[in-house]
Design a protein around this nucleic acid. Structure first.
Length: 407
DNA sequence: GTCAATTCACATGAAAGAGACCACGGTCTAGTG
DNA sequence: CTAGACCGTGGTCTCTTTCATGTGAATTGACGA
């Protein structure tokens, strides 16, 4: 009976699906890796990048460039856009000696350590380097040799460079900035892109001065600018009149609230139109956006949590347990006690408190919890841990963890 | 009441170990002509 | 004779432990008004 019902519904569903015209007709436009032809509200920055890079066309070394700006302010897009253009021009004038390497330092297993970064660079230049097994300076030598042999002007774009520095220190940058002294046929200049505005302050002053010969700051977009961006993308992505009035404004407002993150705005728009389409609506309404936001957040957290190693999950689980019990700030000590219990229950070797403490701050960085150190005077010093996720998601996470840990 | 010393409960740093990977070169083995 | 299997060595990377040191303010206790 029930089955019959659902079968009928299912075929009906497919029929309806076919009859309907899709809301979205060009989905990729809304994806974050889409490369638009024109970049709005970034003319100044693009011009600056272009001016800095232009000497490369005459085979003189461009100044090193440092770009700051929060996520979703168009840094990567602008740089890619500019470098694409300059490459085109170089090609047209048959200048074969300009090479641009774009590397995202955050990518695990590719460029998140000194060895891997240099190895990756050498690989991009066409030299095969083993994933591991060679001494780091050997890799440097190989890289130098290739570079010297090819005799090129190399522009190295290091995206999310702050991540790399945080993990490995600034030695790489020091070595890279010094490269030119050792090369006679090639030259290298570096474009560093960082989300972290104060990042350069912790850098070795020598590195800092040579790296930031030029600096560009990408300010956050304001709500109006985000609206413009959304509109231009929406025009390509949707059929006419699909978006109810106010939708774009609301997406923009949400994103502007989060330090003007255009990427986020686009994601909101994409997910809410997805939801609307799946539900068979003909239009995207304002209320879809709220739902989209909830969905994005939920998926983000769930994805992060299930990708964590066991120890992290156990840590998080213990924090959640304590939090749900007394609905208050959790201290490291409390959580650690519970954690040890959980470990013995599920047969996991408990880590030391030292490590536990590190895991807590790593969870903090992932944005699942908020932890800040406070001193309670006579009663010591600890992290006060709060969950950074709302209760519905929290319970869901707890269930997932419970299953994962028992299993 | 004031002020410096004390004290708590961890935070934070540094160094080093364990174990997983991996490349490389040398040696051994089995298959081939 | 040679290709491939099989070591041992030396390297990186990640996660972790051990040992040491740091730290911010409530509390304490001495001191002087």
């Amino acid at each position: 009976m029930i089955e019959k019902e659902s079968k009928k519904e299912l075929s009906g569903f497919f029929e309806d699906f076919l009859k309907k015209e899709p809301i979205i007709h060009e989905k990729t436009v809304l994806k974050s890796n889409y490369n638009p032809d024109e970049i709005l509200h970034r003319d100044d920055q693009i011009n600056q990048i272009a001016q800095t890079l232009a000497p490369a066309l005459r085979e003189t070394k461009p100044s090193n460039l440092f770009i700051y700006g929060k996520t979703g302010t168009g840094k990567t897009v602008s740089v890619k856009h500019t470098t694409d253009q300059i490459l085109k021009v170089a090609e047209k004038n048959s200048n074969k000696n300009l090479r641009i390497l774009y590397i995202n330092c955050k990518l695990k297993k590719i460029a998140d350590t000194e060895y891997r970064l240099i190895a990756q660079l050498a690989r991009e230049l066409g030299k095969d380097i083993p994933v591991t097994g060679l001494p780091t300076d050997e890799v440097y030598n190989i890289f130098f040799a290739v570079l010297e042999k090819q005799g090129v002007t190399l522009v190295l774009v290091l995206d999310e460079i702050d991540q790399l520095m945080k993990k490995t220190g600034d030695e790489i940058l020091y070595n890279l900035t010094r490269i030119n002294a050792e090369l006679s046929h090639s030259q290298v200049s570096i474009i560093g892109i960082s989300n972290d505005l104060v990042f350069a302050d912790n850098l070795d002053p020598r590195v800092k001065s040579s790296l930031s010969e030029e600096e560009i700051i990408f300010p956050p977009y304001n709500a109006l600018q985000i609206q413009d961006i959304l509109r231009s993308r929406a025009e390509k992505a949707f059929r006419k009149e699909v978006l109810e009035p106010g939708v774009i404004e609301k997406c923009a407002a949400y994103a502007a609230r989060e330090h003007g993150d255009a990427r986020r705005a686009l994601e909101l728009l994409r997910v809410s139109s997805d939801l609307a389409e799946r539900r068979g609506q003909m239009k995207v309404s304002v209320s879809d956006i709220d739902e989209a936001e909830e969905k994005i957040e939920r998926e983000r957290v769930v994805d992060i949590v299930i990708a964590q190693p066991k120890q992290f999950q156990a840590t998080l689980y213990s924090i959640i347990s304590v939090y749900l019990k007394n609905r208050d700030m959790v201290s490291t000590g409390e959580a650690y006690l519970v954690y040890k219990n959980i470990c013995s229950r599920i047969g996991l070797r408990p880590l030391t408190q030292r490590r536990f403490s590190d895991i807590v701050s790593e969870l903090d960085m992932l944005g699942i919890i908020n932890a800040r150190v406070t001193s309670k005077g006579r009663y010591g010093r600890t992290r006060e841990i709060e969950l950074a996720i709302n209760d519905t998601i929290l319970l869901k996470i707890r269930n997932i963890l419970e299953k994962d840990l028992e299993g």
